[in-house]
Design a protein around this nucleic acid. Structure first.
Lengths: 208, 208
DNA sequence: GTCTATACTCTGATAGAC
DNA sequence: GTCTATCAGAGTATAGAC
């Protein structure tokens, strides 16, 4: 299962990588229960039996994909939240990075949230948890409050407000786009505009 | 298929109602592709064959459930958004109603959003769409701005910010609760606190 | 209208050749 | 490691008695 990356010759991915790529694509589009092993095999350009050769079962293949996705997503956010940048810069940076990420991976939020709802205990394995994950940011908010730069706000509220406003518009795209009567281009522009407007909104809300 | 409500005797739901109830429960918990007809039948306390007698196929049963859920959810929001209440009261009221609704129907947001992602064109049928659905609210925001009570803000931004901050914490409960190291009671308290904090946050952000 | 029994399709998983 | 062929079980849907 473990293999040197240098076995890749001439731009070709290893079979294992092709499988993971194909599986991620199909699982993210259809969800775990909606995905078909045949479709994953087709997507990877290999045979169905090979899926079982590398990963014993659909369950195990899904787990591999899910862990890969999660470990590339959540820690990145923690890094941004706890960086040493000034608060306002940090908020703008997070908005920019997340807008970029979700623009390129439209299905990411609903994939993660849906699969976690189906199997809540899946979370406990891979990613950092506990109150200290927001420690740096919490201290920063406290310092800014004591300097009189912002209102007092709990770090959980701050994080939830920021992430909600950034992620939800992507998760709810199909609903909101239809309801608001926008076409694809208009909604994409709307999301780009929010990349600036959300940080502005938040910094306004924090003004003492 | 159409039946008088008075055929219900002694607190018993009609078979059709029992089916819809059971189907909604299972579909919302497992999603369309994860749901099993047998489980729906069990939940409704009837036989599997009866499901097909009333609704020809799983697809049609799902459509019936989905339309019922949607038509009881989105229009309610429009009513609140476009009511004639003063802006601040309106925001507090929406927060209260939505927190209450989602507390009792935890799976609602991910159910709707996931199924819409699987089948985007499903939306076009049942609910009101187009720019005029926010007309009243848009006028209200404009008036308040002209009176100097609030900053200028596009109605789509306002609505998206409000709904995001209210709904996302429910959709992302499993993720955020684990990451923040809260237990169930703590997170429930967090959500209750947001019912007040989100409107406050929004009204602050709107201050000129 | 409601049930039991069953037909039939789909799909995850395995066997075995190369 | 990769393929073809096939099995076994699950799941949707239907037939037919009552």
């Amino acid at each position: 299962m473990v293999k040197s990356p240098y076995t890749c010759i001439m731009n070709e991915l290893s079979t294992e990588q092709k499988i993971i790529e194909g599986a991620r694509k199909v699982f993210m589009a259809k969800g775990k229960s909606g995905a078909r092993m045949q479709e994953i095999a087709d997507e990877a350009g290999i045979n169905k039996a090979l899926l079982h050769y590398y990963y014993r079962s659909k369950d195990q293949l899904f787990n591999a994909v899910f862990e890969e996705v999660m470990s590339g997503f959540v820690p990145r956010l923690f890094g941004l939240l706890n960086s040493d940048l000034p608060l306002e810069v940090k908020v703008y940076q997070i908005a920019e990075r997340y807008t970029e990420l979700l623009t390129n991976h439209r299905e990411l939020p609903l994939f993660i949230l849906s699969e976690l709802q189906n199997d809540p205990k899946r979370i406990t394995n891979k990613i950092p948890t506990g109150r200290e994950v927001f420690k740096n940011l919490e201290d920063q908010l406290k310092r800014e409050f004591e300097k009189g730069n912002i209102r007092e706000i709990k770090v959980e509220m701050f994080v939830m407000n920021l992430i909600s406003m950034l992620v939800f518009p992507f998760a709810g795209r199909n609903l909101f786009q239809s309801v608001a009567g926008m076409d694809n281009d208009q909604y994409t522009a709307f999301l780009q505009e929010r990349m600036i407007e959300v940080p502005k909104f938040i910094m306004n809300a924090l003004k003492p």
